[in-house]
Design a protein around this nucleic acid. Sequence first.
DNA 1: CTTGGCACTCCGGCGGGGTGAGTGCCAAGA
DNA 2: TCTTGGCACTCACCCCGCCGGAGTGCCAAG
Lengths: 339, 339
Amino acid sequence: MQEERRLAVLRAIVEDYVATEEPVGSKSLVERHGLGVSPATVRNDMAALEDEGYIAQPHTSAGRVPTDKGYRLFVDRLTTVKPMSAAERRAIASLLDGAVDLDDVVQRSVRLLSQLTRQVAIVQYPTLSRSTVRHVELVALAPNRLLVVLILSTGRVEQRIVELAADLDDEALVELRAVIGQAAIGQVIADAVTALGALVAEEALAPPATLAVIDALSEAMSDHRSDERIAVGGAANLARYGDSFDSAVRPLLEALEEHVVLLKLLGEATTGEPITVRIGHEGPYQELASTSVVAAGYGPGEEAFARLGIVGPTRMDYPGSMAAVRAVARYVSRILDEA
Amino acid sequence: MQEERRLAVLRAIVEDYVATEEPVGSKSLVERHGLGVSPATVRNDMAALEDEGYIAQPHTSAGRVPTDKGYRLFVDRLTTVKPMSAAERRAIASLLDGAVDLDDVVQRSVRLLSQLTRQVAIVQYPTLSRSTVRHVELVALAPNRLLVVLILSTGRVEQRIVELAADLDDEALVELRAVIGQAAIGQVIADAVTALGALVAEEALAPPATLAVIDALSEAMSDHRSDERIAVGGAANLARYGDSFDSAVRPLLEALEEHVVLLKLLGEATTGEPITVRIGHEGPYQELASTSVVAAGYGPGEEAFARLGIVGPTRMDYPGSMAAVRAVARYVSRILDEA
DNA sequence: CTTGGCACTCCGGCGGGGTGAGTGCCAAGA
DNA sequence: TCTTGGCACTCACCCCGCCGGAGTGCCAAG
């Protein structure tokens, strides 16, 4: 009974604080939200909530502000992720459907996410490791120079230029292409790498020229850079923070350059929880203690190949952000399904 | 005589202001720089400089600050772009030499530039329009599905997936590849597009399946998105601005999202001036009136295919920035030459 | 043309009183 | 036992006036 009202008070505090960015007091609370009790009652509840650590006051005789623990309770128990409106879904669909290739999908997703949430958006490129080799193309740029193009099931294309020790004639090129294709196409990345390695071991290939090609391919496949590729957008939204420049904007700006940090923030791709929220100090970086992350995995089928999400101040619109992240993750997954 | 000293005073003011970020007064000027005259003399010079519009005071009884016009004079007549130190050049060379492909070159250049200048760096991807077609590859993903890969002389690779109305057998595919290659390879983009158009007109190709392929190729070649691709880095340096958040950081953050704006800031690629400096209001956007741009063209050979540069507050280290921009532009050009 | 002297201006920091939002506590009412 | 109105209290914040200091412009002398 009282317990229930207390939660209502917490919710009201969170909502008001997010909206106004100012500590919220008992009086304005009862005015704004139609809780049918007096300020004094609310004050008692607030004292209790403060004892339990859900809210805090910046200084005596100021209103209350949610703590990280308070936000946590809010998202865990007081939030229902409301579905996007039909109009919003149409907008998402139409924007993403226009994409021409994987790069474009990722770019558009970032823009979309940052616009929907008015926060900084992060989208990880689909991970290489689980995708399969769709095609390998060898193009002779010169007799001793080869362009190696690797096409993956996710639509990603990697290319490398290889300098050969000796010239390679057309015939040899055709054969090389066939042998490599035989070994790699259709395989999961990891298997393809071992299969190519085996080719070299068997000496099924004429060594001098081809070793370099296999090397380049293997390197392209296991290139860690690819796993770590990330698109970031909406940094302009940082300008809206206004206050809390030092506590939030500065460290976040620095983090945005460090893609490794961003990847860690997004967390690991799991099929479990559909959506992850990390609030303030819960994250691994204490410089980012006043920011939160809302992220979700995406990928074709049921698997989560990669992650996307947003970063913002702990004082953010969690229900809205969660809805947006979930919606975009779903649509991107669908598009990857079709491709 | 006096004229000379006045310029020395202006230079000193610019240097001090850039270093301290504070209006500079006559006394501290003579202390810091060894001009052999008294503060009073300097004051007279400053009054003259102010009359001519090179410096201004934020309010009475404050020190002087350079105006845009003052900075302009400074870079035009008082600056010699000092060459980078040998160590710096080695660092640049070693960082850029490790690049594996065009994308990587651009990414590394951005990071390098932002680190060298501690400003926001911008690198435009080499423009499509002047490059030539090196190779066209058609890959059958399914009987009615084709992956079209376009490889350009700059090392850029564009790919499109094409859905065909009718199935295409291997033989037809080989022929199609040959015909297209014949028409396009070695041509400048623009010529290739018209040549492909001619193919369609001549009906030299079996229509139904192949029209879509030609379309996709033409589209990929004239894709404006490619011309507008840009890499941005060093946004974290914005955090150092500290003051002047509203006047400089906010609009710049917003501009960073608008790649079209950034392109316009970089200016057009010309072979003339090796390096361009645009100071404050000289630029096309009045929101960016308190920022300056230092840019240069780069590209293989003598031609400037694209541009790169940095954006920062008008109060920036112009000689240093110009040196860094010039050095990076040169090294990138050299690398593109080799590729 | 340069220089020292001098009066003037005005930003910025400091201290003090008033205001108001908000609180905690208490005693009375449901 | 919970709710409610009343009441005294506490600070953050704002406004104001006061100063010190840096910097200036002007002038007369060298």
